[in-house]
C-alpha cells in the first residue's frame, strides 16, 4: 500500500440527536481510487462530505473524532476551511455548472485565487479541460454558456473546474449516477487517468463501477463501516457475510 493521504479516527457525526456516522476509522491511500459503497442512507455521502468539511454548512451537525489530511487534523480550530477546500476538491452528484460561460466556469477557481492575467487563465482553462477529456469537444465554444452542454459534458466540465484549483484530493459524490452509459464510461476512464496525480475518493451506488475503477473499497451500512480492503478482495472473498450479501445483490 502507498502512503496514507487521509486518515480518520473514530469519526462520529450527529444530525441533531440522530447518529449518522458511528466511529469510522479508515486510511485512504495516496494517488489511488477508494470507493465507498452501501445502500442509500448508509452514510457514505455524509462521510465523504466530512473530508472537506462541507457538512459545516448544515446546521445542527456535530462531529467528534479526527480527520487527518497529510497528518493534519482538519477539524482543528486552527484550520482554514477555505484553503482546505482548495486542497480537497469535490465533484457533486448532480452536475452544477454556474450560469456563466464554459471558460468562466473553469476560470472561477483560479480567479478566486487572485489570478486575473488573461493568458495565464487561458492556459489553466485549457490544461484543465484537457485533463478532464473535454477540451476537444468545447475548445471552439469556450464563451458559450455551460448550461448548453449535455449532462455528461457538464459533469466533465465540473471536474475540469475542480482540477483548475489544483487540488491534491478529489472527492466524487456519485459523479455518474445521473448519466447515460457512454458518459459514465468516459467519466470512469477519466478517473483512471486522474489517479496518476490525484488521490480520489468516490461514492457510488453502482457496484460494477466500484469494481471497475477503484483500488480500495469501503462498505458502509447504517452509519457504520462494515468492511474496508482491496477492491479485488472485497468483491471476491469478503470477510463479512453482510458485505457478501450486499455485493451479490441480496439487499440494498
Amino acid at each position: 500500500m502507498k502512503e496514507v493521504k487521509i486518515k480518520t479516527r473514530d469519526l462520529t457525526l450527529f444530525y441533531g440527536a440522530k447518529m449518522a456516522l458511528n466511529s469510522i476509522s479508515l486510511d485512504i491511500p495516496e494517488k489511488e481510487v477508494t470507493a465507498f459503497i452501501g445502500p442509500s442512507g448508509c452514510g457514505k455521502s455524509t462521510f465523504l462530505r466530512t473530508l472537506n468539511r462541507m457538512n459545516d454548512l448544515i446546521p445542527n451537525v456535530r462531529i467528534t473524532g479526527e480527520v487527518l489530511v497529510d497528518s493534519l487534523n482538519i477539524y482543528d480550530k486552527q484550520i482554514d476551511v477555505v484553503n482546505l477546500r482548495k486542497k480537497v476538491g469535490m465533484v457533486f452528484q448532480k452536475s452544477n455548472p454556474f450560469a456563466k460561460s464554459i471558460f468562466e466556469n473553469v476560470a472561477y477557481g483560479p480567479r478566486i485565487n487572485g489570478i486575473n492575467h488573461k493568458a495565464r487563465l487561458e492556459e489553466i482553462v485549457e490544461s484543465s479541460l484537457k485533463k478532464a477529456f473535454i477540451w476537444e469537444e468545447v475548445k471552439d465554444r469556450l464563451q458559450d454558456s455551460a448550461m448548453g452542454l449535455s449532462g455528461g459534458q457538464q459533469q466533465r466540465m465540473c471536474i475540469a473546474r475542480t482540477l483548475a484549483v489544483e487540488p491534491e484530493i478529489i472527492l466524487m459524490d456519485e459523479p455518474a449516477s445521473a448519466l447515460d452509459p457512454i458518459s459514465t464510461a468516459k467519466i470512469e476512464e477519466l478517473i483512471f487517468e486522474l489517479k496518476k496525480n490525484y488521490t480520489i475518493v468516490i461514492v457510488t451506488h453502482n457496484m460494477q463501477q466500484a469494481a471497475r475503477v477503484s483500488d480500495h473499497t469501503a462498505f458502509f451500512y447504517i452509519g457504520e463501516l462494515v468492511e474496508f480492503g482491496k477492491t479485488k478482495k472485497i468483491f471476491t472473498t469478503p470477510d463479512k457475510k453482510h458485505t457478501e450479501e450486499y455485493i451479490t445483490g441480496r439487499f440494498g
Binding site: L57, V82, R85, M90, K94, F98, I112, N113, C158, T162
Partner: peptide
C-alpha cells in the same frame, strides 16, 4: 439560487462573501 451552486463555489475554495458576490 440552488444550494448546489453555493456548494460548488465553496468546494472550489471560495469564501462565503466571494460566493455571494460571484454566484
Amino acid at each position: 439560487v440552488p444550494r448546489e451552486l453555493r456548494e460548488a463555489s465553496l468546494a472550489l475554495g471560495a469564501t462565503k462573501w466571494e460566493t455571494i458576490r460571484r454566484i
